[in-house]
Amino acid sequence: MSATLQDTRLEQPGRANLVHTIGSRFSLIGVWVVLAVVYAATEPGTFLTSGTFQTIFGSQQALVFLTAALLCTITIGEFVDMSVASTLGLSAILVPVLTVDHGWNVWLASVVAIAAAALVGAVNGWLIVRLGVNTIVVTLGMATFLLGIALWVSNLTPVSGLSHSFSLIALQDVAGLPLGFWEGLVLMLGFAYLLAWTPLGRNMRFVGANREVSRLAGIQVNRIRFGSFVAAGTIAGVGGVLSSAATGGFDPTISQSYLLPIFAATFLGTAVLEPGRFNPLGTLIAVYFLATGILGLQLLGVAGWVSDVFYGGALVIAVTLSTLLRRRSV
């Protein structure tokens, strides 16, 4: 017995394994680089401009916030929160409606918009966690309900007219990119830190993997689940306020177009950095990867339908990839 004690050292993954690990972690980044090189070679005049860079990295903040919101609930095992896009839409329309139509202070309107989004998350959480209603049904219903509310308060029309000074919370230039990009980056870095380095993040992972195991380990499972829904609502709400600021107003019908890209990016994110796991930084990379792909195709002269084809196709491929990676890891 004592001989075997000394013999068993912790194995380090071998070199072949290391190549494999790097391959599976960074392959999407490799594809991204190849994609950029191909576009740069075929469209050097348009793709290789700072405007392209600006468009790719400066225009995705709504998507970044939405994927972060979706990650809140997906890490704790709620597979599909369909309502985050509509929650963002509600928050984004409330700001111009309250400010422009009703003459509120824009900051107060922002706080109310975020609070409303957090309330939506709390209602979702209450129905799903306390009452045990099916997640898809609750959030799908909630998504349509909120879209309707957004159309109602805005009288079915886009509302604009927010002040330039307010737009600086999203558009202020910092090191060549709008502030919104940096805000999204900080959010995702913070989220990644939370999941990887704090007991709360660890608990969230375990709740997502197996609720009964978590409960037996003393984790307050339902509190974490409820909190995740509230956090999802709040993050979508903040994202809404920033979207509104960036465009000086909001078109209430636009929120639905985010739904597919959110899922595509989130699932594609499981193929990056931590294969088989939903992870914030991988998701962030996936958001910009998808944005690059679409912009490049548009520059090549492909028409407007390309984003539907690209996001739809990417979603199917990403979910397939995610399923295969997860299967291999169990």
Binding site: L194, P199, L200, R202, N203, A217, G218, G276, V330
Partner: peptide, 24 residues
């Protein structure tokens, strides 16, 4: 056990993730 999480994460769960720990 949570089968889709690592040996290490599972093993330290009661110490690191469980009760009596500051969440952050």
């Amino acid at each position: 056990l949570a089968l889709e999480l690592s040996v290490s994460e599972n093993l330290v769960l009661p110490q690191r993730g469980g009760p009596g720990r500051r969440a952050l």
